[in-house]
Design a protein around this nucleic acid. Structure first.
Lengths: 242, 242
DNA sequence: CGAAACGTTGAATGGTTTCAACAAGAGTGG
DNA sequence: CCACTCTTGTTGAAACCATTCAACGTTTCG
């Protein structure tokens, strides 16, 4: 098997894809665009009738409160859809920040619907991925509402790990992670100072190290036990739909 | 105009509905079911290939953590869809609790798709409502992550107010609310004790009273200013799509 | 009437934030 | 190439918001 795009890899985990379906996937990819780290992708206008599929780089979507603090709602990594709903529904009310340099393929709504019509299994796969994204936002909400800082942080990093494994960018030993402690803080609803302390604790307990753009998991099993991470959607080694 | 169902009322706020479209809506309603307060609607099996439209009563969906605490993700009120995604996507991993006695009409996936195909404006309206639901979950996440207890609580009660106004069950003076302080606590990520204190503060500041199943808003404008509530989707006095 | 659920309040505890100060590394322009 | 600044990371101490524990009042309902 030759190198698949992260997107194809991810969908392949949900639905076993035939060569024909893989070919149909290619039709989705439109114009390639790149965005610079830090410079917000203003949703108004820029992405209006089109969505993107992330080819490389990390992105986050967030909201800013009148007080000036912000809350990151979710991160997108290679293989993820960006703005899928905004194509179908309405202009979103949140901001998008590229965390690294980002390469993304534009996806036109018309192409998407066209491919969906001709290869229903692809539609299933895409919607499945979308529903997983939504489940993650819910999981995120639960974590912020009911888990303490350490559990929440570890959970988040473990979830990132499972997502990255889907596209071949992580193993249970760790992964490259371009996030700053400020990003973590804004996502976890904590202060950056406290994130720092929590990371130190995780490191001193020899569970996990978050340093210099690298997450190293020292004891995967013990970490999972310690924070009661639910492995159900982790133990997916084959497509769900054949 | 004769009495519309809450569902029709809500959609009417998004899309101006013709008589023909209102008639098409009626086709959606299938078997009527009722559920008892407190008895969880187990998602596995019960609601599998069908969704529901709430006719009367309140429902909440929540997740339970290994520690035993729970986090309520969202509430559904009359006019809301229940399990829309589970029809399209996969079986959800959360529980559903009817808070009051609930009357709901079953909606078959086939009927839904059929109506969508024949009256695209209805499809737009339904998807619009779905996207608003999703936006609310995000708003909820932001609140839990970045607002203090008082702001969070007031925000939540104001949001409920705007939702209920859409279906004619609230005014800016208040509304009937069957939630207990425990429900509030589980939704807001707070302890019930602290919710009680926060409610007292809101009451003593003559902003809002939450008592005996009734939310009374004493000073709508001052409350909104105090907690920096965003009125944008509040000031909707006409359909967005004509 | 009694029990169970819900609401209320105080005091002690604790997790998290804020403030403040400093170290280390990356990028920038002179 | 070095000084400079800016961002990111690190640590301690004080302050604060929210939780927990515990007790008691109130309502609801069988």
């Amino acid at each position: 098997m030759i190198a698949l795009s992260p997107f194809a890899r991810k969908l392949g985990a949900f639905v076993a894809l035939s060569d024909a379906e893989l070919a149909a996937l290619d039709q989705l990819y439109g114009r390639r665009k790149s965005f610079l780290a830090g410079r917000d992708i203003v949703y108004q206008g820029q992405i209006k009738q089109s969505a993107y599929i992330l080819a490389s780089g990390w992105v986050c979507s967030y909201k800013i409160l009148p007080s000036g603090t912000r809350q990151i709602v979710e991160f997108q990594i290679p293989g993820d859809f960006l703005g899928l709903r905004s194509v179908l529904f309405r202009t979103p009310d949140h901001n998008i920040e590229p965390i690294t340099r980002v390469e993304a393929s534009e996806v036109l709504a018309s192409d998407l619907l066209d491919v969906f019509g001709r290869t229903p299994r692809l539609a299933t796969a895409v919607l499945w991925a979308a529903s997983r994204d939504e489940a993650m936002v819910v999981e995120h909400l639960v974590g912020i509402g009911r888990r303490d800082a350490l559990e929440r942080t570890a959970h988040f990093l473990l979830e990132l790990c499972t997502r990255l494994m889907l596209v071949g960018m992580a193993t249970t030993d760790g992964y490259a992670c371009p996030l700053s402690q400020y990003h973590l803080a804004d996502a976890l609803g904590l202060s950056a100072v406290h994130v720092n302390r929590v990371l130190r604790e995780l490191r001193e307990d020899a569970l996990l190290t978050f340093q210099k753009g690298q997450v190293t998991i020292h004891d995967f099993k013990r970490l999972i036990d310690r924070v009661e991470f639910d492995r159900t959607y982790l133990d997916q080694d084959g497509p769900l739909l054949r």
